[in-house]
């Protein structure tokens, strides 16, 4: 089964249906000790360097070049120039599902066309299970660290839906005391222990914006996938994303919002707008290199809890 690298959200159901094994090149980064040279954002710089050095063992690469990460367009080309067969995927900014459908058909041609259409339904069922885990987390039945670990893996389902299904079935339920309900918006933190650190400081993350997108979108065929993934909020205008966030934060009864931004990432520019439009106490933090959550970030988290206690 060919191993297909992905740089951001690409419908994994389609890759499986085409007989490929998706592999999200971001997932190894937080626990790695890699420091790339010539970097802007560490996420893209590290995967780019690892791709060029052939450290992932992938057969081909899909770069999400439109509608998500702007640095990926260039870092993806560097990987392509090193000789990796690469396809550039573009989400529609305006949500045009016909355009999205054409992008998916073009992706299908790159992957060798659909061979296992039953994979669409299998992944859809798994995503339902993922949504249930998320719901249990909101109700204090599953820890935020465990929920994050599962949700973030829905971008590639570890390349093996059966193994992933077994892992989901073993998720432990607990009774977790929730004192400060936190929404974590923006790109996921580059620190591998961030959710545990937040929990240790009495901040319970009840919403992970991007990982929730990984379980929210699905479909039983190209047309349905096209319509559903058109609502992938990171690819759409900010108004669209903010409207979605407002509903989601209200539904999850959050007390405060942490906006994680990554050094040299264009999403940092959204901070001012999000602060103005989301009516919650908000902490903005900026990460850079992977590893453990640094002390100065812990200070911010601790101070934010104190701020919430004053609210």
């Amino acid at each position: 089964m060919p191993k297909i690298g992905i740089t951001a959200l690409v419908p994994p159901e389609l890759i499986f249906a085409c007989g490929g094994q998706p592999y999200d090149v971001n997932n190894v980064i937080p626990a790695s000790k890699k420091y790339s040279k010539n970097k802007l954002c560490a996420w893209t710089a590290i995967w780019q360097e690892m791709l060029v050095k052939r450290e992932f063992g992938i057969d081909s690469l899909i770069v999400v070049a439109g509608g998500d990460c702007h640095n990926a367009l260039v870092d993806g080309q560097k990987a392509a120039m090193s000789g990796i067969p690469t396809h550039f995927f573009f989400y529609p900014f305006d949500g045009d599902h016909k355009y999205m459908e054409s992008q998916l058909y073009s992706l299908c041609s790159f992957l060798g066309d659909i061979k296992y259409p039953e994979k669409f339904r299998q992944i859809k069922e798994l995503k339902k299970a993922g949504q249930l885990i998320d719901k249990k987390r909101i109700n204090g039945k599953i820890s935020s660290a465990e929920t994050f670990r599962i949700l973030i893996s829905f971008s590639d389902l570890w390349g093996d839906p059966d193994k992933f299904k077994r892992a989901i079935a073993t998720v432990q339920e607990n009774d977790i005391e929730i004192n400060n309900r936190i929404a974590l918006i923006g790109v996921p933190p580059i620190y591998h222990d961030f959710h545990d650190i937040a929990q240790s400081l009495d901040l319970q993350i009840v919403f992970d914006e991007l990982p929730y997108e990984f379980v929210r979108h699905t479909g039983t065929g190209i047309s349905e996938v096209a319509r559903d993934y058109c609502d992938y909020t990171f690819a759409r205008p900010l108004d669209f994303r903010i409207e979605f966030l407002q509903k989601e934060l209200e539904k999850r009864k959050v007390d405060g919002v942490i906006h994680y931004t990554q050094f040299a990432c264009h999403h940092m520019l959204e901070d001012e707008i999000l602060r103005n439009r989301l009516d919650y106490p908000m902490l903005t933090i900026q990460g850079d290199l992977p590893g453990k959550t640094p002390e100065q970030i812990k200070l911010r988290l601790e101070a934010f809890r104190e701020v919430l206690e004053r609210s």
Binding site: F263, R275, P281, M282, L283, T284, Q286, D288, Q296, L299, R300, A303, V307, R310, S311
Partner: peptide, 9 residues
């Protein structure tokens, strides 16, 4: 507004 920012980079 019960908010804060810190410059340390």
């Amino acid at each position: 507004r019960n908010n804060f920012i810190i410059n340390d980079k």
